[in-house]
Design a binder for these strands. Structure first.
Length: 219
DNA sequence: ATCCCGAGGG
DNA sequence: CCCTCTGGAT
């Protein structure tokens, strides 16, 4: 199947079944989203949502977080992955927000990436979710699912390469949605370890499924 | 044992 | 490019 047709099928299916996909991280303003996304590295959204209410209540804006001790922030996030690093990142992020951006969440990749704990992926999530900009954040799900569905070439071995491959073929108005579609598909159907191919509506053009079937020995 | 919406540093 | 960080669920 041609690459163009793969993208058409992908967009068609999810437009029909998930017309308005959203992040599963709980938040009520851009600052809370930024905190939640920084915490979400190598951790499930479900876990972030379990600890975020107390965290947001104690640190509702950059001002309180910027003057907090790393130890206290750590105490709120100790159950997520890499709590030491993330506690330092959160305090540093809040201080940088106040010192350089007047406490407002910046709206460019370059400015967002100057914030401690914010890399290309997190920056693009903020731009996509907060500002609805056509940017593709490539996380572990987007990377894996894109390759399995043949939306990214085998030569795209880095997140940036996958990002460019997706951006080259997805119409701008679908980019923010496509980001969520790829994540939802990766989280609930196209699982990393044991993907639920039986429940996948896209398996007829999935390279992973094709290879998987081909490797089964008929007895 | 493997994975979860990675980032920073060497 | 590599490595480290490093908790909880399955």
């Amino acid at each position: 199947m041609l690459k163009k047709e793969r993208f058409r099928r992908f967009i068609e299916y999810f437009t029909q079944h998930y017309p308005e996909p959203q992040t599963e991280l709980n938040f009520s303003n851009p600052f809370e989203l930024l905190v939640a996304v920084i915490l979400s590295a190598q951790c499930t959204d479900k876990r972030i949502n379990q600890i975020s209410p107390a965290l947001f209540a104690r640190f509702p804006e950059p001002e309180s977080l910027a003057v907090a001790s790393v130890d206290e922030v750590f105490s709120y996030i100790r159950s997520v992955s890499y709590p030491n690093n993330k506690a330092k990142h959160l305090v540093g992020m809040a201080r940088t927000l106040l010192e350089r951006f007047g406490g407002e969440i910046p709206a460019t990749v370059e400015e967002l990436q100057t914030l401690p704990g914010v890399g290309r992926k997190t920056a693009h999530v903020i731009l996509s979710v907060v500002y609805n900009e056509p940017t593709m954040a490539v996380d572990t799900h987007v990377f894996r699912v894109s390759h399995r569905l043949g939306l990214a070439p085998l030569t795209a071995t880095t997140p940036l390469a996958v990002e460019k491959a997706l951006m080259a073929h997805i119409p701008k108005q679908y980019v923010p949605k496509a980001h969520h579609w790829l994540i939802l598909h990766g989280r609930y159907v196209c699982l990393a370890r044991s993907p639920k191919c039986d429940a996948c509506a896209l398996r007829d053009f999935c390279k992973y499924y094709e290879k998987r079937m081909g490797s089964i020995v008929v007895q």
